[in-house]
Amino acid sequence: MYFLSKELYFPPASEASFEGILAVGGDLSTERLLLAYRNGIFPWFEIDEPILWWCPPQRMVVNPSGYKIAKSLRNILNRKIFEVTFNQNFSKVIQHCQSIKRNGQNGTWITDSMIEAYLKLHEMGVAKSVEVWQDNELVGGLYGVDLGTIFCGESMFSKVPNASKVAFVSLIQQLKEANYHLLDCQVHNDHLEKLGAFEISRANYLKILKASL
């Protein structure tokens, strides 16, 4: 594990620990965040921890071109009970992702410093959001980092049933239309698996990332 200084540098992803931790420290400057994502690395840490940089051995992804929406979710989309927008309220989306209660979690990894950093990326046109509305209320959404042909999803939230699912598939539909290679969901969880995400090796992910960039 590497301890970062002010130097704008990351060690090779192959140096990551068994769990996927590559480095500790550094900062959340836009320059460092962009360097990280372009090398398959992302920050993930709790409020009382130093900045931890990850490149896990298995990567959870979606291939937009081959994605098939589940019949039950397609029915929800067809009923048009939600309105979906893109990049209309990034700040509210990331704030809701920070504050939403999640089963099995006591707190959030989205610190105030993380919000500040990703707001700067959003101002640069790199960090983007999907908003899901119901009766003019923001009830779900997600945000992430757009690398051009790979979208790195960071977090999503839902205040009513199915809202985050609608955000997820709406993003995939947009990525498919734009011929994106991957939606990067970072690490495995059961919810993402049920939505159709799957794992590939770190080596395979980095190969696709390098070719895409």
Rank of each mutant, 00 (worst) to 15 (best):
M1K: 05
F3T: 12
L4Y: 04
L4D: 03
P12Y: 10
A13E: 06
S14M: 11
I21A: 07
I21V: 15
L22Y: 04
V24I: 15
G26S: 09
E31R: 08
R32I: 09
L35C: 03
A36E: 07
N39S: 12
G40A: 05
P43R: 01
L52G: 03
W53H: 01
W53P: 02
C55M: 03
P56F: 03
V61S: 07
V61P: 01
N63H: 11
N63T: 12
N63V: 14
P64F: 01
Y67V: 00
I69M: 09
A70F: 06
I81P: 00
N89M: 14
I94E: 02
H96M: 13
I100H: 04
G104F: 09
Q105Y: 13
W109P: 08
T111E: 02
D112Y: 09
E116K: 14
E116M: 12
L119H: 03
K120R: 11
G125E: 08
S129D: 07
N136V: 09
V139T: 08
G140K: 08
L147S: 06
G148S: 02
T149F: 09
I150Q: 01
F151S: 05
V160K: 11
N162H: 15
S164A: 13
Y180N: 00
Y180G: 01
L183E: 06
H188F: 15
D190G: 02
A197R: 06
I208F: 09
K210T: 12
A211N: 08
L213W: 11
